[in-house]
Design a protein around this nucleic acid. Structure first.
Length: 876
RNA sequence: GGGCGUGUAGCUCAGUUGGUUCAGAGCAUCUGGUUUACACCCAGAAGGUCAGGGGUUCGAAUCCCUUCGCGCCCACCA
């Protein structure tokens, strides 16, 4: 059966991946070659391969495989991120299923469960990457909580602390009541939610009057400690300095004034809840207002909530607003759309909360990061448009809250020896030593030390990744970091430009005084055909492994890359992968054709074969130059498209069709050159489709393991002969012209046609006659002074060609067609002449452009002439 | 609210400093084709007022203004 001979990726891919691994081709060690390093954006250790990973890692693999072929010492370091909050959430969930509540077990016990989880599931995503063909150096797998990386993290914490850049402070932070930890600003998604704006009366003390306030969060009324109006608000000025009573709570609070209050919004009067809102906090601080925190860490109300104590904030909102209404304090409710910050991980609304946390002062660190990207281009962003976002963030950078109230992660290396005094140290022993010295109490014991309960933000380890994977933090002078750093390319999504990319740059300059990478390729998001984000809840995210199974890794890789310019979102459809798979099949079959040829030493090389092969050599070089240009601009999909067309159109449709013979016999010269050309195609395609190319590479010749494609040599792009390309284009147009006539007049391909062209025009590529004869199925193009009677003509450039067409000519139709053509060119000529007779044009336009216009005029005149001649022939 | 970006064929996008015959590619579509690499294919064709309007210029998809549409980032008003 034919179908069984089609390309079957599944077993082949497994076979070749194993082969590469067995021969250690992915492994890199320091040597005298130039390094080309990529560190993987470490996926979450809990993660599973999704479309975003596929895209992103395919691009990295393309870059690293190409570098390897170009003779660089290519090193792609894989690894995973401990992802503290995400992983901890999963482990908590798992324990819950087993009937274990996190709060009932010790930190130590929890960590044991978490590590078990990591050991069991942590390598899943890396195994999936192998299926995709990722040529990572698997001897170098790193995990952000490995011993060496953890020590690096602590070392940096200690160092920054010594530099005075880490401090502990009370700030309004984002609190996730479900995970019960703080979040950084970047870990919050704002979404619009329809809620209600409650208008509430606050009676004035000693008067029969009241203030109106508008709030979306009546449950925070228990924390109200002031009311505030704008000092310039004439309507409300008279209330300033008076006291109001918080309804139901019955607390007397002062009415103060501050410019921050917007008189236009709501009632113009703001209730101040300093412990539960950013603005209120600022105003509260400024006016020295009492802080009342009425919420528990889990989002329920505390004793300040009176009878609502223990109830969730949203339950209280409902119940308490009802109570206000019943007591006559609620004036009205309005529907109101406001933006609510949701925790990225747990999806619950974030609660602003006053909290004592660790921070990094960022301002003193950012200068080199601004310079590198925005001034001297030592780090390039692709696409460039992200520079703006990057600039904006860095120039307005805020201090980084790095403490998280979690267990899974790097525990903060701070040890308290009394309420307010602490030391920072790598180990307990070191801490003890320092604490004894600092306190003067030399009898202090380990038990007297209390380590900070919090762990560090995940990104506090990720920002060191390009250095820590080579152990460049602990040992700044080690050979590996000196060799592999700075890395070459970073491929990641724009969503973590601040989280991660910018911070890596900051850390790179702070700790090595050097950029962590040269180029940052920011991929777009993978969306579905309706432009929706891929998500589990929508169920629109295809299963990555199933895709690979259906279309082959090569097919999926190509499918993803064909339509994904840097920074552009990718609208994923399976048909893209189908296109990729079809391409693999195409090359597979081209190989089958070539392998099926029978070399006959007696045969001479036919002219048409030489024509085609000569042309393809030039075409290959010209295309390769284009491809290199695309790569240099990180236009990966354009590079792929160029290769796709080179192989499919140029090699298969033109070269193979040219050399094909009915008896499958072929001369040695042609055969050798043909396989050579296919091999060059395989080399440049290999980064995109590693499996099928490696397989064919070995099919074409019996190669030793040292000759594997993956470590072979990338072709240099040489000069190319424009003349050869130009002549071939003319020949190709002639062939297409004949084919077009055949189609139009319904002339079968098997009928050989007599082909003429008018003498007097010496541009016809005589040397390609054999090729034309073969591919257009005509006689050898014959130069004549005048065409014979019954012909159909067409023009290539300004050369007129004709095939004999006895009995096929509809004179009227031909005339009509020619007249249409004539009208078009006459109009065109008019335009050109008008331009040329415009003095201003001739004066102002560069000579080159004017000459071009003159040539245009001449060409058009020539064309008109031939058309008129054709017409006059028809008149006879 | 502040900032950035974007609108080109049915879809996804190229289109360098304004200047070749510049309006392009891939996919999808239409027409014809199958004993001999591939129907996961071959050959041929059709598709656009470059979002609308105005301006600068000898010349505008490209530069400027404006209207409309879309997207992203930042800050957030209780």
């Amino acid at each position: 059966m034919k179908s069984s001979e089609a390309y079957q990726p599944e077993q082949l891919e497994a076979k070749w991946y194993k082969y590469w691994m067995e021969h250690n081709y992915f492994h890199s060690e320091v040597d005298e070659r130039k390094p080309y390093t990529i560190v993987i954006p470490p996926p979450n250790v809990t993660g599973e391969l999704h479309m975003g990973h596929m895209l992103n890692n395919t691009i990295q693999d393309v870059l690293i495989r190409r570098a390897r072929l170009q003779g660089y010492n290519a090193c792609w370091v894989p690894g995973t991120d401990h992802a503290s909050i995400a992983t901890e959430a999963k482990v908590v969930e798992k324990l819950k299923h087993e009937g274990i509540d996190k709060s009932t077990i010790s930190r130590q016990a929890f960590m044991q469960h978490a590590w078990e989880w990591k050991e069991t599931y942590g390598n899943k995503i890396l195994e999936q990457l192998k299926k995709l063909g990722a040529s990572c150096d698997w001897d170098r797998v790193k995990f952000t909580m490995d011993q060496d990386l953890s020590e690096s993290v602590l070392k940096v914490f200690i160092d920054l602390h010594e530099k005075g850049l880490i401090y502990k402070g009370t700030r309004m932070v984002n609190w996730d009541p479900k995970a019960q930890t703080t979040l950084s600003d970047e870990e919050i998604d704002y979404t619009e939610r329809s809620g209600q704006l409650y208008y509430i009366k606050y009676p004035i003390v000693g008067e029969n009057a009241f203030m109106q306030i508008a709030t979306t969060r009546p449950e925070t009324i228990f924390g109200d400690t002031a009311l505030c109006v704008n000092p310039d608000d004439e309507r409300l000025q008279s209330f300033i300095g008076k006291k109001a009573i918080v309804p139901i709570v019955n607390r007397e609070v002062e009415i103060i004034a501050d410019e921050q209050v917007n008189p236009q919004f709501g009632t113009g009067c703001l209730k101040i809840t300093p412990a539960h809102a950013e603005t209120d906090y600022v105003i509260g601080k400024k006016h020295d207002i009492e802080f009342i925190d009425c919420l528990n860490d889990d989002g329920t109300l505390n004793h300040y909530g009176q009878k609502y104590e223990g109830k969730d904030r949203f339950v209280v909102r409902k119940e308490f607003s009802k109570a206000l209404e019943e007591a006559g304090f609620l004036l009205k409710k309005e529907n109101y759309i406001n933006k609510v910050g949701l925790s990225e991980r747990t999806k619950v609304p974030v609660e602003p909360k006053l909290s004592n946390q660790w921070f990094v002062s960022m301002k003193p660190l950012v200068e080199p990061a601004i310079k590198a990207v925005l001034q001297d281009d030592s780090i390039k962003l692709f696409p460039e448009k992200f520079k703006n976002t990057y600039r904006h963030w860095l120039e307005n950078i805020k201090d980084w809250n790095i403490s998280r109230q979690l267990w899974w992660g790097h525990r903060i290396p701070v040890y308290y020896y009394d309420q307010n005094s602490y030391v920072v140290a790598m180990t307990e022993d070191e801490a003890l030593e320092k604490a004894r010295e600092k306190s003067g109490n030399h009898d202090m014991q380990l038990d007297d030390l209390q380590q900070d309960e919090d762990v560090l933000d995940t990104w506090f380890s990720s920002w060191l990744w390009p250095m820590s994977v080579f152990d460049g933090i602990r040992y700044p002078d080690n050979k590996e970091i000196a060799y592999y750093y700075p890395t070459k390319d970073l491929v990641t999504g724009p969503d973590i430009l601040f989280f991660w990319v910018a911070r890596m740059i900051i850390a790179g300059y702070e700790y090595r005084d050097e950029r962590p990478f040269e180029n940052v390729y920011l991929t777009g998001l993978v969306r579905d055909a309706q432009r929706r984000k891929m998500s589990k809840s929508l169920g629109n995210s295809p299963n990555a492994l199933a895709l690979i199974k259906n279309f082959g890794a090569d097919g999926v890789r190509v499918g993803l890359l064909l339509s994904s310019a840097a920074g552009n979102d990718l609208l994923f459809e399976e048909s893209l992968c189908q296109q990729g798979k079809n391409f693999a099949n195409k090359i597979w079959n081209a190989t089958k054709l070539i392998k099926g040829l029978i070399v006959d030493d007696q045969l001479e090389q036919p002219d048409y074969a030489e024509n085609a092969l000569n042309w393809f050599d030039q075409q290959f070089n010209a295309t390769l130059a284009q491809i290199e240009d695309h790569y240099s601009k990180y236009r990966i999909s354009d590079a792929l498209m160029s290769i796709y067309k080179l192989i499919w159109d140029d090699f298969c449709s033109w070269v193979l069709e040219s050399i094909k013979s009915t008896d499958q016999k072929i001369d040695k010269t042609t055969y050798d050159r043909l396989t050579g050309q296919l091999e060059k195609c395989l080399l440049i395609l290999h980064p995109f489709m590693p499996f099928v190319t490696e397989d064919i590479w070995h099919q074409l010749q019996n190669r030793t393991k040292e000759e594997a494609l993956i470590i072979s040599q990338y072709p240099e792009h040489g000069e190319f002969d424009g003349q050869i390309l130009q002549s071939f284009n003319v020949a190709r147009e002639i062939i297409k012209g004949v084919r077009h006539l055949r189609k139009e007049k319904n002339i079968g391909f098997k009928k050989q046609l007599k082909l003429y062209y008018l003498t007097g025009n010496n541009k016809h590529p005589n040397q390609l006659n054999a090729l034309i004869e073969k591919l257009a199925a005509t006689t050898v193009p014959k130069a004549v002074d005048e065409f014979p009677g019954n012909i159909l003509s067409f023009r290539v450039d300004s050369i007129e060609y004709a095939v004999e067409a006895e009995g096929l000519i509809d004179v009227e139709a031909e005339k009509q067609k020619l007249n249409e053509e004539l009208r078009y060119y006459q109009g065109f000529l008019k335009g050109v002449e008008k331009k040329l007779s415009n003095d201003k044009f001739v004066q102002n336009a560069p000579d080159k452009v004017v000459d071009m216009e003159k040539k245009k005029k001449q060409d058009t005149l020539d064309k008109i002439k031939t058309i008129e001649e054709s017409l006059s022939r028809l008149e006879v």
